[in-house]
């Protein structure tokens, strides 16, 4: 029996909200800026009621100027504040890419170590809500390409609650990707705690195949693992959590244990994070493999609106199960 006395049930959204509120309470330098974070309460209601509690100086509604307010986050961080910038969704972060990549990411290195940018940028990501191609991108893997920034993908209640504190304690720019399909997910939260932003975590232990994933695909991988267990296939589920720097050690450990791996990623496969994970397995665990590493990714198409098309375009538990079985068949 699990002891539930120290746990409470909470949504991913509320966990994010509580983390944000705690950060604002604990450090007067922390403030939130972004589109509709105040009066509107946040596009996904993560910052609901914070305007009333902390006032318009610290909960700052911005105009639709992603490039400027992300850059202002950089400047404010350099100037001694601890800004949390909310970009409504990853889709709109494209308008701020220049500041993230050409300024935030390079500052410490190119200034010869003189300046650091302790900035946190939060944004929602992912598909699965029938909002069509322009609102369904998953670019966190792209961002993970860039040295100088750190990339987080909370996919559990615990991470949603505590990753922000770890991000704020980090001296460098940290991008935190909240998966839009997870906001309503509920789960148990330990009464108190903290998380690291260094390691991948095994969310379900197994021995036959490692399902390596993160973000919105984590619940799908866990579902697939559960179904596979009914067929006596023991799947381990590794949640990457931190997409940069990648915890290669944890990836290799799971592969060494299971000898087979499927990488599940909502990003497109070509030139992707899933490709990077596979490459690292090739480099460091090739001789531990009993079968080629497989992938379940988004289909290479702008994510369609119609429900059946969108579902078919994204990783799903059934696709993961099929991929696992194909792997086992191949190596049998």
């Amino acid at each position: 029996m699990i002891d539930n006395t120290n746990k409470k049930r909470i949504s991913y959204r509320d966990a994010l909200h509580d983390g944000l509120r705690e950060a604002l309470q604990q450090d007067p330098r922390v403030f939130l800026l972004g589109e509709d974070v105040g009066r509107y309460g946040g596009t996904y209601a993560v910052s609901k009621n914070l305007l009333d509690e902390f006032g318009p100086e610290r909960i700052r509604d911005t105009p639709l100027s992603e490039l400027a307010f992300v850059g202002m986050g950089i400047g404010a961080a350099l100037g001694g504040m601890r800004p949390i910038v909310e970009v409504m969704t990853v889709n709109f972060s494209l308008l701020a890419l220049d500041q993230i990549i050409n300024t935030a990411a390079i500052y410490h290195h190119m200034s010869g170590g003189q300046f650091s940018v302790p900035l946190v940028i939060r944004m929602s990501t992912g598909a699965g809500r029938q909002v069509a191609a322009q609102h369904s991108n998953s670019f966190e893997g792209w961002f993970a390409h860039i040295p100088g920034i750190k990339i987080l993908a909370p996919a559990t209640i615990d991470d949603a609650r505590h990753m922000l504190a770890a991000a704020l304690a980090d001296p460098d720019p940290v991008l935190l990707f909240e998966h839009a399909a997870l906001y309503n997910m509920e789960g148990e939260l330990p009464a108190d705690g903290s998380v690291d932003i260094k390691s991948a975590k095994v969310r379900r232990a197994g021995t036959d195949v490692a399902l390596i994933t993160y973000g919105g695909s984590l619940p799908k991988a866990l579902q697939a693992a559960e179904a596979l267990a009914q067929e006596n296939i023991s799947a381990e589920v590794l949640d990457l959590r931190v997409l940069r720097p990648l915890d290669t050690g944890a990836i290799v450990a799971s592969v060494r244990k299971c000898h087979r791996a499927v990488v599940i990623d909502e990003g497109w496969r070509s030139g992707s994070l899933s490709a990077e994970v596979m490459a690292r397995i090739m480099e460091q665990a090739f001789f531990d493999l009993d079968a080629p590493v497989a992938r379940v990714c988004a289909e290479e198409v702008p994510i369609p609106y119609a429900r059946h098309l969108e579902e078919a375009a994204l990783p799903q538990p059934e696709k993961i199960i099929t991929a696992v079985k194909a792997l086992l068949g191949e190596s049998a």
Binding site: L67, G71, M72, G75, A76, L78, G79, M81
Partner: peptide
């Protein structure tokens, strides 16, 4: 420019 405005925001807030 955005960075400068952010520095100024930090000064204004502080």
């Amino acid at each position: 420019l955005p960075v400068a405005a952010g520095l100024a925001l930090a000064d204004k807030m502080q």
